[in-house]
């Protein structure tokens, strides 16, 4: 029997996001926050993408976006994540309610998988947000190549992540696996020390 000497640390990483200013001072800091969201994965069954589109338009006013894009509906956004597969993201509501609503709308046209507990959404915003992300993000986030409403699934800090630019500031929502959240935040805040970061 043998064990490591790892010390325990908080799973959610909430201790890493203590309110206030951190890192370098004097420049333009970025803002980092954890967003409380529901995330539902919708995968169209074979040949049923049209039915899924109609269902989500009716249920949530979502016009399902194509590759690399997001679209906003009534209180929810849809992010393209894979061929005929989307994340529907909305502010956290009653447990399972969003998934149930989507499932009811789609019927057997889609596999609807609640990932609200399996994904965490971290937002980063500020004029230097793209600079902080570029420390690990290999996707070009320059305004000429990316912009509000754009989505990219890629790697951030050795982890798979879906990146959604929400405005021109720029602000980004970063959707990551919840069991890696702490590790992700450790790396993100470390990267943001150079510009300084503020936690609201």
């Amino acid at each position: 029997m043998s064990v490591s000497n790892h010390s325990g640390s908080n799973h959610s990483g909430s201790d890493l996001l203590a309110p206030g200013a951190h890192g370098a001072v004097g420049g333009e800091p970025v803002r980092i926050a954890l967003r409380s969201c529901d995330v539902v994965q919708v995968l169209a069954r074979k040949g049923r993408a049209g039915d899924v589109a109609a269902a989500l338009l009716g249920a949530l006013g979502l016009v399902l976006p194509g590759p690399g894009h997001a679209a906003d509906g009534r209180g929810a956004s849809a992010l393209w994540v894979q061929p005929e597969g989307w994340f529907v993201v909305a502010p956290r509501g009653a447990d399972g309610a969003l998934a149930s609503a989507i499932k009811a709308a789609c019927g057997d046209a889609a596999s609807v998988i609640d990932q609200s507990h399996g994904r965490a959404v971290v937002s980063i915003s500020g004029t230097r947000a793209a600079w902080v992300l570029a420390k690990s993000c290999r996707v070009d986030l320059h305004p000429s190549a990316f912009g509000p409403g754009r989505v990219a699934s890629t790697q951030l800090f050795h982890l798979a992540a879906t990146l959604h630019q929400t405005d021109a500031v720029p602000s980004f929502d970063l959707i990551v696996f919840s069991t890696f959240l702490r590790s992700f935040l450790e790396s993100l805040t470390h990267a943001a020390e150079e510009t300084g970061y503020v936690v609201a």
Partner: peptide
């Protein structure tokens, strides 16, 4: 064809 030009490490 879905995501655009990406580095080999994503694959």
């Amino acid at each position: 064809p879905w995501c655009g030009v990406r580095d080999e490490v994503e694959f």
